[in-house]
Design a protein around this nucleic acid. Structure first.
Lengths: 382, 382
DNA sequence: CCCCAGGTTGAATCTGCAG
DNA sequence: TCTGCAGATTCAACCTGGG
């Protein structure tokens, strides 16, 4: 029997003395292994998978309920699988699964882990201790994160992925050209702007979300495209509802998942069987429109483009407003944003502060502050 | 002398038994402490600084300065064992300075650390182990990063900051309104787009850059504005060329720096003496309503801003409530505060009556009673 | 058919003070 | 330390229903 293209690919990538595979038992390709991932991985041979993508429990340590300003309660992650007694317990769990994953990973393979500040620092440290070699940390900047309802912190608007090779000397796969093409012929950066998973992509069961933390396929799409080749084997120890499997199938990669929860498994199997191998529509999801960067007035102040203390006028010099350190304006005893103060002064419902307020330039005369914004954008554009 | 509103706020935040400060020796404000930061911090009293900003060495090979716990020097590494040894040494170093910083930090203070994937995971894990409570991880997304010349990885286009309070129960400072204003009336997110330090801001010495990792002032500007108040004391254990000091001076904060390198110290001292403090009038930042005087609804009734007998509605006119002479509401036979009745009607655990209940103004239509409160506050403000 | 208004929702370590 | 309660607090995307 002729080799499939994917088998050719694996052979081509093989190190000279990679006999293990010939002796090793066949891999359970494109199946979900039931049960605990550490146990499940023990059944896989050494150095048998090309890439690992892992979305482990984050150990969120949430307190009581969180309500939105309008009174409704946030549907938070309260699953047992996310609870650990101590950091030490979490570290031991992390060390155990990362150890097993590294054994199963080929020497030239790489691993991705996603997490938030609750767990990612622990994961990263353990991973370095075990000999993985960090290649990049990637920031997933959420286009539409949940706001901070209480106004107590910065909006938690991103998650972090660590991309690491098996070891320092690994000849890992990185499809540089594909990434550059995907990014309008600019090098792909370590920060990716992608929407969170919602809409028809969000899997439901009995009208409720099937999994509390389903990842967007666009994220996995980029991960798989960057660090695997067609025909490679991808292992996901925390398979959940199978985003990794669905994207792997679409992109012509083989996958192995581990999952304990029978409900998640059911949903994932259905989903993956519905996933069509790559067509044009799949590519479309990746074409993010490059919108103009939004620049806040405060950025101009904090970067020195407009000095605090500067006095702004409207075009007819009816009002004079002083720029504050935080980018707000003070005018006739009132304080607020450039838009708000502009509206208040004119007694109008709204106002575009960018064109309303002017700086009196000794050379060019009255210039709308929008000119400063344009200067800033030109100077900082990549 | 009357307290300004921001001073009131600082005092209001103080813990009851803040006697330590009175007894403690005077802090070496606005000076650079020469020598190793751990030694230098030992000379500072407990709980004496409001905020710590630290930009520790990133590289795990600290040259002759990185020693194993038992005192031997770690040299260049290329095998796993030495790597582990190096990580362990870096962890010890991190643990030492973070421990000392935590002692010096006030219980309601907070700490910022900036790093890259080389060190930030270790710093984050140690910091959690020591009892710091992470509030956010902040991604500084560089507008103009250095490209990845060899095309072997993603362009490393960001650095990570961790913002943590002294402990879980700390009443840390977060100037929510100022941050929201700085971001054009949207909540400030955990990802900040800022240019790297260059141009005239980049300090030179003999034509070469004075410090390899000088941070942009805009970054510190935002950090200080977010997490300190005017007059607070900021400690920077890795002072370098003094970005923290320069921005602190501009923003009316006191600072203390630690630095070993005499050349950096010279550059920093010159730089800070050149930094102009912002005019008092430009420093007034947006205050949270939290710090505004509290006005009871009963006050509005007793002062005639809302007449007893006035009928209030919710926005959709589902309920009608009558204002009583004592400032309570009566609605569907129930009586209570504006908040309580609002909550009862909606069958919600709580409700902000100020925004829930409206007065039907013949000219302006439905107006939340909060506008009456604002009118009262403006009219009665000193 | 489109458009707009209104409702819902997402990995969240989410209050502070008086008594 | 605990309880009770005043009152401060949200952004972008998607869905649904009515005009």
């Amino acid at each position: 029997m002729a080799l499939t293209r994917s088998e050719e690919r694996i052979n081509a990538k093989k190190r000279p003395a990679a006999k293990a595979k010939a002796k090793a038992p066949a891999l359970p390709l494109n199946t979900i292994l039931r049960g605990d991932c550490i146990e499940a991985m023990r059944g896989l041979p050494d150095a048998s998978v090309d890439m690992v993508f892992a979305d482990p429990p984050y150990n969120l340590q949430l307190g009581g309920d969180l309500t939105r300003p309008e009174g409704s309660v946030v549907d938070a992650v309260d699953n047992d699988w996310d609870k650990f007694d101590t950091f030490r317990a979490y570290d031991e769990f992390t060390r155990a699964w990362l150890t097993e994953a590294r054994r199963v990973l080929k020497p030239d393979g790489s691993l991705w882990v996603i997490g938030s500040y609750h767990n990612i620092f622990r994961v990263g440290a353990v991973l370095q201790d075990l000999g993985y070699w960090i290649l990049n940390d990637i920031v997933w900047r959420k286009a539409n994160p949940m706001p901070n309802f209480r106004g107590t912190r910065f909006t938690n608007a991103h998650e972090t992925m660590i991309w690491a090779s098996h070891g320092e000397k690994s000849k890992y796969t990185f499809n540089y050209r594909a990434m550059k093409t995907l990014n309008d012929e600019l090098q792909m950066r370590s920060d990716w702007v992608l929407p969170i998973c919602g809409g028809s992509e969000r899997l439901k069961r009995n009208g409720k979300k099937a999994h509390p933390t389903q990842k967007p396929e666009a994220l996995l799409y980029r991960v798989l495209l960057a660090s695997t080749n067609k025909g490679d084997v991808v292992l996901d120890p925390f398979f959940g509802t199978g985003t990794t499997g669905a994207v792997a199938r679409r992109l012509g990669r083989d996958w192995i998942g581990c999952e304990r929860d029978e409900t998640y498994i059911e949903v994932a199997e259905q989903r993956i069987s519905d996933a069509l191998p790559l067509d044009e529509s799949a590519l479309k999801t990746m074409q993010s429109p490059r919108s103009a960067p939004r620049v806040a007035f405060g950025t101009l102040v904090s970067t020195g483009y407009v000095a605090p203390g500067t006095v702004l006028h409207d075009r007819k010099r009816r009002w004079a407003a002083t720029v504050q350190a935080d980018g707000s304006l003070v005018c006739e005893g009132k304080q607020g944003s450039i838009h708000k103060i502009g509206a208040t002064m004119q007694d109008a419902p709204s106002c575009n502060g960018w064109t309303f307020w002017h700086i009196d330039d000794p050379e060019k005369g009255m210039q709308p502050i929008d000119t400063q914004r344009q200067t800033y954008i030109l100077a900082t554009e990549p």
